[in-house]
Design a binder for these strands. Structure first.
Lengths: 199, 199
DNA sequence: CAGGTCATAAACCGATCGGTTTTCCTTCCG
DNA sequence: CGGAAGGAAAACCGATCGGTTTATGACCTG
């Protein structure tokens, strides 16, 4: 096997992502290092502090977050389908063992301080998700794209939080909810072309 | 003044509620005692542990949680209005300084362990809110009362979480969202009498 | 006044926190 | 082979964690 070739830095980022997701942001540096198979000394010459490691770990995970939720850019499907795709992904992921909801929401709740570096990163990443919803809402011709985007991310956070703490399975919940909101926003199942808008 | 007559136990419960809401469940026992003006010794002969104090504090706050959100029982208003009342309250409270979202959701997210005594209490209290929504949905003749109730508490948690971390003001968000869901559920603005159901 | 009851303040406990430092061993390169 | 570099292990730092204990006082009752 050519595995285990991962550099020290990456092992630390992975361990931070895994342990803080499972145990919260208050995991000890000792546990982090042990999980990564790395000494504290190495940690502190790669990162300024635990807080910065945390923030870097969240930032690195943004890619997987996006690819795991969002549809490919310009896949030709109508905005409605692209939005539904996100929530289908949420429902699927919620079934997976170890699912604990949106890590970025959890981090912001656990670190009450919004100026904490990790909290800033989390906020930025979620703003991108809001941006995706807004762009699709605009593209789909929603009556009030900003409102629809806020509604969708509200459902996203509510759903993943409730599923994450184990009080709802989301089964049969997201599809009717999002469908209802999309219908009410006037976001149909087809791409709204410039020509169609002019009619 | 006849104030400051509050017994030791109550001062501890209040301090626990205030500090854990603001700083999270990881506040130190020392800080708790200082805020309550109580010695550690007194704390530990009134409560078995910090965890139990936490749980007791949440349980005591359930009353204020209910009266601050729910309409009076049997106030004669139709279920739709009674449900809207809850979300109007959320929006109002979200504007208040120091608002940090639903403390019961936060506690369950911070304490990852669902068997933690405080997590159990939080879960029970939120189940009661779900029960309220379900009862109103039934009373209002919703097509699928259970679905509507889950949708409503999902919106409740999503909204208070996002407002609590300061990424949304909820302004202009909850009324259209809840209205849309109630409409889709066929829950009109009037009480559905037994006679009306038979038609 | 004597005696008991309560609560406070503060010392104390072992464990752990985030972070630093020292020591040692491996690996690579000439 | 010699020497520099990197990282692991672990001791160590002061601070804080949840929790216990001791000592001191304030208050009530007889």
């Amino acid at each position: 096997m050519t595995t285990e070739a991962k550099p020290t830095r990456e092992r630390l980022l992975d361990a931070a992502a895994t342990l803080t997701y499972r145990d919260g942001v208050n995991v000890g540096v000792e546990a982090l290092c042990k999980a990564a198979g790395v000494s504290k000394r190495s940690l502190y010459q790669l990162f300024e502090s635990k807080d910065e490691l945390l923030a870097a770990s969240l930032k690195e995970g943004a890619g997987a977050f996006v690819t795991g939720l969002l549809p490919p850019a310009d896949d030709g499907r109508p905005p409605r389908d692209r939005i539904m795709h996100v929530f289908a992904q949420v429902e699927t992921q919620a079934h997976a063992p170890g699912f604990r909801g949106c890590r970025y929401l959890a981090v912001q709740i656990e670190l009450k301080d919004p100026r904490h570096p990790a909290s800033r990163v989390a906020r930025r990443i979620k703003r991108n998700l809001l941006g995706f919803f807004r762009a699709e809402a605009v593209q789909g011709g929603a009556a009030d794209p900003e409102l629809l985007a806020r509604q969708l991310i509200l459902v996203f956070d509510g759903a993943s939080a409730r599923a994450g703490i184990g009080v709802d399975t989301l089964k049969g919940l997201l599809t009717p909810t999002v469908t209802t909101l999309l219908d009410a926003a006037g976001l149909g199942g087809t791409v709204r072309t410039a020509a169609a808008s002019r009619r």
